[in-house]
Design a binder for these strands. Structure first.
Lengths: 225, 225
DNA sequence: TGCGAAACTTAAGTGAAACTTAAATATGAT
DNA sequence: ATCATATTTAAGTTTCACTTAAGTTTCGCA
């Protein structure tokens, strides 16, 4: 799951990013409205947490802008004070939820789960993905088959999740990079090969009837054997 | 996905075309504004990458011209300097995005994906080509008939794609070379024969009711038997 | 009908892309 | 601070798509 956090207060932003990463979200952080907009235009997120009060462009304007561009990504607005007017204006502009500072991290996590639940439900079955004889439990990061099971590390999990949400589709190394590492991360595309290798080893150990096939000069593709 | 790249600097244009083709876009290249306009008037594209500074007609004028003609194709503008005025003028003229040189290829690709996302969701019919009893799935590189199917290698795929997008048209070996290998590649025209041979073998195995016919001293042509 | 040119087929060689592994580094928990 | 685990880098290895080359067939024309 990939989230964007737009929050100008650096210490709060860092704290929230840490909490979210611990909970296995992939998080990009923007520090003002214009930056947030740029991220939103170039990446696809599963959810956005948007501070209302920000330099250069306020959160509600960002929200209006992306909604008018036809982007329906779920958005939680953050604000310092619970002003009813702000709240109404925010929700009218297309926010899915609203949270006032200060907030408990547990509440934020719960609201994020609620916000992303719908898109998951709309897309497909909830927290468990199936393909062939393997199952990925997104709540526990467990990849299992009738023969065996593994608890996956964060990056491994996101790789197989991406593949299982798009079975039989070709996914390029660049798409993995953009989605999991963020398009501005400077890691070698080598790292994708490494994780593909790890995952294949696990699929073999699971006696999976599916495999990650390489399509030279194109990408990878999860297919039945 | 079919893109038009309008960029006058030959070396940059060539580099970008190569990158885009590698990412399985079909790309036409124009080297000035007037040429770009001609391409845009005679073909339908899924997206356009338009350099602002070009001979004969600048990018923004091209953009204004096609917009006033009612063409809503998504456009990314390219410019050397990040001048705010230029940016505003470009976006006001109807550009969907703006990218300043130099740029990372991964960022360009991400922006193209963002730009074409909507149209991809709208019309996915583009990703499958039909002729006679054979079908080419451009998403999975699969060539199939009611009897059988093959996953094609990159070059094979591009050859049959070119033929299936222009059925009954005569395509010369040179056209294949320019389009698939690039007009400056130094490979023997032998390779075209080789791939035609591979494809014919596959068409036979598919019991296809179409064939690649050779027109002596002219080229090849995909026709019903 | 026979000749030369063009088109075709096949198979082996090559290099770039993909893969694997292990070691180095970063992160995070105790 | 220390140790355990996750992630990234680096380097050596393998694989396979592409190219080449050489021999064969087909075609058009005299």
């Amino acid at each position: 799951m990939r989230l964007l956090l737009a929050e100008d207060e650096a210490s709060l932003s860092k704290a929230v990013v840490t909490i979210l990463r611990k909970n296995n979200y992939t998080v990009d952080a923007a520090y003002d409205g214009v930056e947030a907009l740029e991220y939103l235009e170039t990446n696809e997120y599963d959810g956005v947490i948007l501070d209302v009060m920000m330099p250069r462009m306020d959160g509600i304007s960002v929200l209006q802008k992306i909604r008018s561009a036809g982007n329906h990504v779920p958005v939680i607005l953050l604000t310092a004070k619970a002003e009813v007017d702000d709240k109404v204006r925010g929700l009218d502009s297309g926010a899915n939820d609203y949270l006032t500072k200060p907030f408990a991290s547990r509440e934020l996590l719960a609201r994020i789960r609620a916000m992303t639940r719908n898109s998951a439900a709309a897309g497909q079955a909830d927290s468990k993905l199936h393909f062939g004889n393997i199952t990925l439990d997104c709540a526990t990061f467990t990849l299992s088959s009738p023969y065996n099971s593994f608890v996956l590390a964060n990056k491994e999990f996101q790789m197989i999740e991406f593949l299982m949400r798009n079975p039989r589709q070709i996914i390029s190394a660049e798409q993995f990079m953009d989605r999991i590492w963020g398009f501005d991360a400077d890691v070698e595309s080598n790292v994708v090969w490494t994780y593909i290798s790890y995952l294949r080893r696990k699929l073999t150990a699971l006696k999976a009837d599916v495999e990650i096939r390489a399509r030279r000069n194109a990408g990878y593709c999860l297919e039945k054997m």
